[in-house]
Design a protein around this nucleic acid. Structure first.
Lengths: 346, 346
DNA sequence: AAATGCACTCTGAAACTCAGAGTGCATCAT
DNA sequence: ATGATGCACTCTGAGTTTCAGAGTGCATTT
């Protein structure tokens, strides 16, 4: 394995990504960065095929990269293009929707933007809500025997649920229950909202049990909601525009998107690129998936990634993913600082 | 035009919908409901073609229905299959998610269910929020200089927005502003939330202007949000499974879905079936769109419909749409009664 | 070590073929 | 007069065949 072979491998991949056609020796020899004859290129390509980095769809066709070929390219050969200033600005403006954006919104916007920018499907798992604090619990009467339960976290996400009771609460009852919830829930971390805690609350209510049980039920559901990590999937549509992805497989993927979270939540660090390999049968054939983690403060808060054709401009897309995960980490961490300030302030 | 010709037209359409292949005289003659020879069928088909109800993709192929053919079939020939009891039950269970479902949720669930049931894309425009009443306005401090504005309507929909101020409000200020909003907004109909009203409020605030202007801004935005009619589009994916719809056109449709609302909001009554005709270039080629209105109480509250291939089992799908619009009308009207009771109750 | 020349292979588009499905029409039957 | 039969004609689409072009490997030359 020498330098020229690597150069040729890189050229094959870049050419193949560009055109989608198997790449022949002639085309490579004509490239400015390759200054040897086609025959020499052929010899090197034969060697690269031997080593498992290239393959021929059939004799007398050009070569296409194998998964190992892409791997080698991504890990050692490509030189990332970074993002242009314009792109960064566009993105920053996407993120800076409003000074007062909630974490939820940040993540949603990011997912959409990522899909749009890469023309791939973007996927994000988010368990950052777990690191936030219940900042407010309210019970608000909104109609005859209908009460709205409101749960607000320090991250700015708001969950609510309407509950219908058998009887109307007296003002005292309402006041008592509001106070009770505030006392027991406000200020505690979402991750501490265990089922046990809720059971304890239920027990503590005791006497009032019968009357307000639907309300407590509602609180339980909201807290469960809050603890659940979100899975966002945007830009599925983009996948249909790639010729080399099978439509049936795309549909299957969309219908079983939850299976993806397994891949995303695996423990790893930095950027990871996944291909369809023996064991991972749920990834679409000829597709690849690029994932990265993001953090909130020091803690892992989720993963984000894109799914696209294997024939992808990695030198461009990987920096995007890096930028996104960094950006989200920054934004969440900023918020997280506010949380702590707020906590101290209270 | 005689009875037999109509029978043949219906048979052609049903056969074509079933197989997707142009239908020849032989196949028709073999059907139990047609008891004449193939030649006779041919003569009748030639006549039907003359009249513009059938066409041949090319000489010596079978016939396929024209748009006029489908029209005639839908208006006079088909006999609707209605829904099975199972289907009705499945649907009713979909709708009955929770006794305390908000209108928004009802509509969303219905859209999803409709898409699933018909295997088409389902589309719903909803302006029922406009008929509901602001039942609660709250301003809740949720952090340092961060306030949450909460708008709850009698239909159970909840809009909220976090606002960041330059200074923290004193308790009195907060109380005053809350009272001010409650006094001026609670109990009024969403459709009365005009921009003028908001301007008047801004004027009335006067002195406090500087401090709380972001909050008023927030209220304005929320009210604008509330007045806007929603456009829901579900099951886009389904469209990709139909061979005779062009993928590019589907993508275009999805990207310009708002243009659809024009078709949906047109005034008409009952069920309407639209095809790609000269002027309506935004409908996908070879597709059809079935739409119906639904009401809340006596007022039109929105439209719902599906988009699918022209080759659709109308006898089945049209009853679905009828059932859905009836069901939604019922559910919303039920809610609407509650509103009025509540209003009187207060 | 790299380039040249050359015989060989494989593909994919174009041309060709042809059975089968379908038609229209003239004619026959009732 | 209405429907059935027979028949010649048309068109398609699937299967074959053909062939130039692209690409290769290898023996040989520089």
């Amino acid at each position: 394995m020498n330098k020229r072979k690597l150069k040729i491998l890189a050229a094959v991949i870049e050419e193949y990504v560009r055109t989608g056609e198997p790449v022949g020796s002639k085309i490579l020899a004509a490239l400015p960065e390759i200054n040897v004859s086609a025959a020499t290129v052929r010899n090197d390509m034969a060697a690269l095929e031997q080593m498992g980095f290239l393959e021929q769809p059939h004799t007398s066709a050009g070569r296409i990269p194998t998964i190992s070929g892409y791997r080698l390219y991504i890990e050692q050969l490509m030189n990332p293009t970074g993002m242009t200033e314009e792109e960064k600005q566009w993105l920053d403006s996407m993120f800076a929707v409003h000074g007062s954006a909630t974490e939820e919104l940040i993540i949603q916007n990011a997912t959409t933007a990522l899909a749009e920018l890469t023309k791939c499907a973007a996927i994000v798992t988010d368990f950052s809500p777990q690191f936030s604090i219940i900042s407010k619990v309210e019970v608000i009467p909104t109609g005859k025997r209908v009460y709205l339960i409101l749960l607000i976290t320090s991250a700015g996400s708001i969950k609510n649920k309407a509950c219908r009771l058998e009887f109307d609460l007296t003002n005292e009852q309402l006041k008592w229950f509001s106070g009770f919830l505030a006392e027991n829930l406000e200020g505690i971390s979402v991750s501490d909202l265990s089922d046990e805690l809720m059971e304890n609350l239920t027990a503590a209510v005791g006497a009032y049990m019968m009357t307000i049980s639907p309300l407590l039920q509602g609180v339980c559901e909201l807290s469960r909601d809050l603890r659940q990590r979100a899975l966002l999937f945007r830009g599925e549509r983009n996948l249909f525009s790639y010729q080399d992805l099978d439509r049936m497989e795309i549909v299957r993927l969309i219908e079983h998107k939850d299976e993806l979270s397994r891949l995303l939540d695996d423990s790893f660090s930095g950027i990871r690129v996944l291909f369809q390999e023996d064991n991972q049968s749920f990834v679409i054939g000829n597709s690849s998936m690029i994932v990265s983690k993001y953090r909130k403060g020091q803690k892992n808060a989720g993963s984000l990634g894109v799914i696209g054709p294997m024939r992808l401009d990695y030198a461009k897309v990987i920096p995007y993913i890096e930028y996104f995960s960094q950006k989200i980490t920054d934004l969440l961490s900023e918020q997280s600082e506010q949380d702590t300030t707020q906590k101290e302030g209270v």
